[in-house]
Every structure is written in C-alpha cells, then in structure tokens.
Design a protein around this nucleic acid. Sequence first.
DNA 1: GCAACTATACCGTCCGGACGGTAAAGTCAA
DNA 2: TTGACTTTACCGTCCGGACGGTATAGTTGC
Lengths: 185, 185
Amino acid sequence: MPTDPSAAAKSTRSRILAAADALARSDGPGHLSLDAVAQRAGVSKGGLLYHFPSKTKLLEALVEEFLSNFDGMLRARETDARKDVLISAYVEFFLNERRLGDPPPSGLLAALAEDPELLAPVRRYERDFLDRIRANASDPALATLAFLAVHGIRAMELLNVKVVDEEEVAEVVTWLKHRLTGESA
Amino acid sequence: MPTDPSAAAKSTRSRILAAADALARSDGPGHLSLDAVAQRAGVSKGGLLYHFPSKTKLLEALVEEFLSNFDGMLRARETDARKDVLISAYVEFFLNERRLGDPPPSGLLAALAEDPELLAPVRRYERDFLDRIRANASDPALATLAFLAVHGIRAMELLNVKVVDEEEVAEVVTWLKHRLTGESA
DNA sequence: GCAACTATACCGTCCGGACGGTAAAGTCAA
DNA sequence: TTGACTTTACCGTCCGGACGGTATAGTTGC
C-alpha cells in the first residue's frame, strides 16, 4: 500500500481523470456528471470535489493532461535538426498511439460540451506545433497537408466516426514517408 | 401570406433546426435545451415538441439535414467521369463553403454530446463518399490524404480550434491542385 | 349547403428526476 | 492534535417530456 499521501493523492487524482475520460466516451460527452465520475473512480462526490473544486476545474485538468502528454512525447524528438524530422515524428507518434489502441481523449469533447472556450489551450498548442513543423519542413505545404490529415483521422476517432480503415492509413503513411524522405534537400 | 399550410409548417421546422444549430454553437453543444430552442425559434415548447416529439428526434433531424445538404451538392458533380474529378470537387466545395463563411454544423456536436450513436449515419455516408473518391482517383493514396486533410480542417472549425490560417489553406490547396491535375494520365 | 367530425398546428403548465455545488462531520497518518 | 483526505446529507435549479387545451382548415354524410 502507498504510505506516501501525495502519491495516494496523485493516484486518486489520476483515477478520477481516467474515470471522467472513460465516462465521456461511454455515456456521451454531454452526460458527464460528477456523481458518475465519483462512482466510477471509487470516490465519494465530496472526495471528488475536494480534488477538483468544480466541474470546470475537472475539465480543465482533463485538457491540460492531454496537452502535457502530447507535448512531452514531441519535445523529445526536437533535438534532431534534420529536415522533416518533426512532421515525420508527428505522424509516427500518432501511428504508434493508434497501434497501441489508446482510446481517443474523449475528455476533450466533454470539455467542449460544457464550454467551447476550454479548448483554447489546445488551439494555442497546436498552432505552436504547426509553426515548428513548417519551419522544419523541406516542403511546408506537404508537411501542413500531413499535419491536417493526421488531425482528420484523430478527429474521426474522437467523434466516433471512424471512416478510414487500417489499410488506407498505412497506404497514406507509406506515400507520405516516401515523399518526406525522398524529396528533402 | 402563404396559403399553403405545408409551406408554413416547413418554414417553422427549418426555423427550429436553424435555432438549434445556432444555440449549440453559442452556448456549447452540451447546453442545448428544448426551452432555449423553442424561444429562439419563436415557438412555444409545446409547438416544438409537436414538430420533434423528443430531443433525440430533433438531433437526428439536425444530422440528417447536414448530410442531405452535403450529399446534394456532391452528387451534382458526379456525372463527370474524368479521373480525380471527385476529390477535386470535394476540396473545391469545401473551400467554397469556407469562403462563404458558412458556420460549421454545430448541431452535429450537440447530437454527439447527447448520444455518440447519432453520428452513425455520418460515418456511413463519409465511408461511402471516400469509396467513390478512391475509385475515381488516379492516385488513391493522394486522394485519401486530401480527403483526410479536408476533414482535419473541418474538424478544427467544428471544435472551435482553428489552427491553420487562410494562407496556409490556400498553399495546401494549390499544392494539391498541382498534383491532382498534373499527375493524371 | 350545412352540420358533425377529424387532422394539423400550436400554446402554457406542471412534474419528476438529474445535476452541480455546499456544509459539516468523520478518519487517520505523522 | 492537526491537517490532509474522505464521507454523508442536503439544497436549488434546470430540463425533458407529458398533458390538456385552442383554433383553424379540411372532409364527409345528408
């Protein structure tokens, strides 16, 4: 058993976040209730509100968690200065996430349902990353196209409208890889 | 004055749908209430429930309206049998919608917030259209990439996370046009 | 041609349940 | 014994939906 209270607190906290994310997916983003999250996380409602003093704070934390996960993964690859490293890493990272079967961050939708403004940090972050990708790209238009395509797939998964199948994704990725490695310089 | 009762009914119906769509955008997709829709549409709640017997039915109608608008526009271009006509038309249509400043169909998000399953028709339709695009494409991978990129932008607008600016969109479209017209054989 | 009846379109009220949030008391490790 | 953590109990509000009623416009029987 964890004797460290802060560790216990952290695990409760992340249990709550995971519960919220899962519930947003299964019940629909608009039906995310504090009672349901508390029950799913194995905490009383009061306990939940101790960690997140309001529903808005909970949703903010959900968005923040998504962004920090994303950011950490990507910064690691940014030491390599070669052309097209970033967009390739972006595609690769996305593919890997997909292969692992990681569920899409449905908490984002719950945040959106409550208040669209909660997604403002996402917009800022994505803008920043697109800037870096373009600056590092041998062909900014192609890199932007790839960036958009990844977002297209991510959005489809988020919205539960999965349209492209595995083969098609693989085909597109192969096509992209060929252009990205073959046309640099 | 319209003496045709069905015409009057239809206008009330579409007024309601437009009101719902607008409210989903301004208040957040999760805060769409029947009272608010009724008030915005200039109808009583009873009147609203006469036209749409439940909230779910209203949301279904919202989704259906989106799909039928989309479908009509696209079928028109499908007579031309040349290669890559479809994906080009798809991009063009999307661009035009964007230029007109048409607001994204936020009703879709309201439907998603209530019940993710309501988007199943969207998935079916999009899958169907992607099949047609690929069958008509000289390079299916490129066509799929373009399809995904368009969806990426659409999703960003839908989620209120507009990341790419006009110039970047134009750049990508030019790039695509060049490949689509230049590589067909 | 008119009375009886039905269908369509809409209104206003009410209720039961869900939900976000508060308050106060209890537990327990350090 | 103090303070982080958790619980139980409760409140006020909002919302979906049911319901009863109204008014106008056909439709039909005679």
